[in-house]
Simulated scan of single mutants.
Amino acid sequence: MTQNHVTGMETSAISVLKRAVELDHGSRFQESLVCYQEGIQLLIDVLKALKDDSKKLHYRDKIKGYMDRAEQIKVHVNQLKEEGKYHEQIRIAENSTGYSYEVLFKPYISDGLTEVWVEDPYIRHIHQLYNFLRFCEMLLKASCGVKNIHLLTSQEEDSSSQQAGALVELRQSLQAHGVCLELKYSSSIHDREIRFDNGWIIKIGRGLDYFKKPKGRFSIGYCDYDLRECQETSVDIFHTKHTKTL
């Protein structure tokens, strides 16, 4: 391993752990735990490549400190989950970036996740259908084994709309990847909620449609949602031992 590579890993570790501390101080514990774990692993990789004994000692102390804090957070989060008191809120500011579905949902996706319920009245227009497609793609790429996705939404009244055809096409495409998409429609649906069968519940004020319209088809953020500007909204995260179906 070259010195440049080691330096690069050190820089990455510092950046990730700095973010972990910021999230920790903001009481966004589940997110901070993910960052602590990633940063600790990067520091361990750096430690393996170091030859300087004083630097090794320095990083061992750092790793121990971060591991102790991560364990404290894990105990705290588990206690809140056991008591049914876990609640975390993320405020997405107007015009902010860096809130792709991968970023927002990753801390709550675990290996045991197999079933997802999406309740969102606005999966109707073309950009909203693309949002739901991206959400499904995110689940397929995540380190879990999702087998069932349930969508409850409102139905577009215009019989010539693209909604029905798009969702049927998506259902067929997901089936080819071993995932079953169940579609249900409601004329009275209002709330927006996403439930994972590992107990996490994510409520987004604007549902999946919290991104601003890109300035053009060849403007930055059109393809990469991390670079897409957001509309102001709040995200509330809860945990329950009993995930009810929609």
Rank of each mutant, 00 (worst) to 15 (best):
M9K: 08
M9P: 02
M9W: 01
A13V: 08
I14G: 01
I14S: 15
S15I: 06
V16R: 07
R19P: 02
R19F: 03
E22D: 13
D24Y: 03
H25E: 09
G26Q: 13
R28V: 01
Q30L: 07
E31L: 03
L33F: 01
V34D: 04
Y36G: 02
G39P: 00
Q41V: 00
L43M: 12
I44A: 08
V46C: 05
K48A: 08
A49T: 03
A49W: 02
A49P: 02
L50Y: 04
K51D: 14
D52M: 02
D53A: 12
D53M: 13
K55A: 05
H58D: 08
H58P: 00
Y59T: 08
R60D: 14
K62E: 04
K64C: 10
Y66K: 03
Y66P: 04
M67P: 00
D68Y: 09
R69V: 10
R69H: 10
I73G: 06
I73M: 05
K74S: 13
V75E: 15
H76T: 13
N78Q: 14
L80W: 10
E82H: 12
K85H: 14
H87S: 14
H87G: 06
Q89E: 13
I90C: 08
I92Y: 07
N95M: 13
S96R: 06
T97R: 15
G98C: 09
Y101G: 10
Y101V: 08
E102V: 11
L104I: 15
